[in-house]
Amino acid sequence: MPGITPYVMVDDAQIYRKFLESTFDAEIPVAIPLDSDPRRLIHAEARIGEGTLYFADSGPTGGRCLESPSEPVHVQLWATVPDAERAFERAVAAGATPARAVETQEDGSRMGGFMDPFGTLWWVSTPA
């Protein structure tokens, strides 16, 4: 059975791409520009560790969906990373807002969270 791949729609996919690269050392093997506006992306793929995240510009001219709602989108993403503190610090440096400081959990793992500049809540965790 295939896994689930999140697809995040953002107001500026180029900035989101930089955020993912800066925070997670994401590789972006696919970034397809919109024919009518090459700065906008109609589809992109980010490889973060062993996982994949799809993203694109939102908006009617992005060919995908309507503009982002004014209310939170209620999307949360969980990323298992080699160093949760490093990912957290890099995210904040790239414009994220801390949601929960990285702390040791009952199982010995390290976990914290932040809201990226596009309204997605990220949880970063390093196994014990």
Rank of each mutant, 00 (worst) to 15 (best):
Y7L: 09
T5S: 11
Q105V: 01
I15D: 09
F24D: 08
Y16P: 02
P2F: 03
G51F: 02
P69F: 01
P29S: 12
A91S: 07
V92A: 03
P127H: 14
D35N: 10
P29Q: 12
P6F: 03
G112A: 06
M111C: 12
E21V: 09
A94V: 06
I42S: 13
L41M: 14
F19L: 06
S36F: 02
H43T: 11
T126S: 14
E50Y: 14
I28T: 08
A84W: 00
V102F: 09
Y54N: 11
D12M: 10
E85G: 06
D57V: 04
A128S: 11
F118N: 09
D12Y: 01
G62P: 09
A84L: 07
G49R: 13
E45P: 00
E67C: 10
G59V: 05
M1F: 07
W78D: 15
G113P: 05
I32L: 13
P6L: 05
V73Q: 14
T97K: 15
P60V: 14
W122M: 01
F88N: 01
E85L: 09
E106T: 10
D57L: 07
D25A: 09
A96P: 11
G3K: 02
I4M: 13
L34Y: 01
S125K: 04
L41H: 02
A87K: 01
F118D: 06
P127S: 08
T80M: 11
E50K: 15
R64K: 14
F88Q: 00
R47N: 12
T80K: 04
A91L: 03
R17L: 13
P117G: 13
R64T: 05
E27R: 15
E103A: 13
I32M: 15
F114S: 00
G49T: 08
T52R: 12
S58D: 15
G108S: 13
L66C: 03
Y54D: 05
A84H: 00
R47A: 12
A99R: 08
H74T: 04
P117A: 10
V92F: 04
S109K: 05
R86V: 08
W123Y: 13
R86T: 10
G113C: 02
G59A: 05
Y7R: 08
G112C: 04
A128R: 06
R47P: 01
V75D: 06
A101T: 11
T80L: 07
E67H: 08
W123G: 01
H74A: 14
A56S: 15
T120E: 03
T104K: 15
G49N: 09
G51N: 11
W78K: 08
